[in-house]
Computed example of a mutant assay.
Amino acid sequence: MSMRVTFLGTSGAVPTTERAPSAVLVNREGERMLFDCGEGTQRQMMRFNTGFNVSHLFVTHLHGDHILGIPGLIQSWDFNDRDAALAIHVPPGSKKHVKRLVHAGGYDPSYPVNIHEVSPGSTALDGDEFEVRTFKTNHRTRSQGYAIVEDDRPGRFDREKAEEELGIPPGPMYGRLHNGEAVELDDGRVIQPEQVVGDPRPGRKLVYTGDTRPVQATVEMAEDADLLIHDATFASDESGRARQTYHSTAQEAADVASRANAKRLALTHISSRYAGDASPIEREAQERFHGECFVPSDGQKVEVPFPDAE
Rank of each mutant, 00 (worst) to 15 (best):
residue 60 T to P: 07
residue 61 H to V: 08
residue 61 H to T: 10
residue 61 H to W: 09
residue 62 L to Y: 02
residue 62 L to F: 04
residue 62 L to M: 05
residue 63 H to V: 10
residue 63 H to S: 11
residue 63 H to I: 07
residue 64 G to E: 00
residue 64 G to Q: 02
residue 64 G to Y: 01
residue 65 D to V: 05
residue 65 D to N: 12
residue 66 H to I: 01
residue 66 H to R: 02
residue 66 H to Q: 02
residue 67 I to V: 15
residue 68 L to K: 14
residue 68 L to V: 12
residue 69 G to Y: 00
residue 70 I to S: 10
residue 70 I to E: 06
residue 71 P to D: 06
residue 72 G to M: 04
residue 73 L to A: 12
residue 73 L to G: 06
residue 73 L to I: 07
residue 74 I to A: 04
residue 74 I to H: 03
residue 74 I to D: 03
residue 75 Q to S: 12
residue 76 S to Q: 09
residue 77 W to I: 00
residue 77 W to M: 05
residue 80 N to M: 11
residue 80 N to V: 07
residue 81 D to S: 15
residue 82 R to A: 13
residue 83 D to V: 05
residue 83 D to G: 05
residue 84 A to G: 14
residue 84 A to I: 13
residue 85 A to P: 15
residue 86 L to Q: 11
residue 86 L to N: 13
residue 86 L to R: 08
residue 87 A to G: 02
residue 87 A to V: 03
residue 89 H to K: 07
residue 90 V to N: 00
residue 91 P to Q: 06
residue 91 P to V: 06
residue 91 P to I: 02
residue 92 P to V: 10
residue 92 P to M: 07
residue 94 S to F: 11
residue 94 S to A: 15
residue 95 K to P: 11
residue 96 K to R: 12
residue 97 H to A: 09
residue 97 H to D: 09
residue 98 V to K: 00
residue 98 V to R: 00
residue 100 R to A: 12
residue 100 R to E: 12
residue 101 L to H: 00
residue 101 L to D: 01
residue 102 V to H: 02
residue 104 A to N: 07
residue 104 A to G: 07
residue 104 A to C: 10
residue 104 A to F: 10
residue 105 G to N: 05
residue 105 G to D: 05
residue 105 G to L: 04
residue 105 G to W: 05
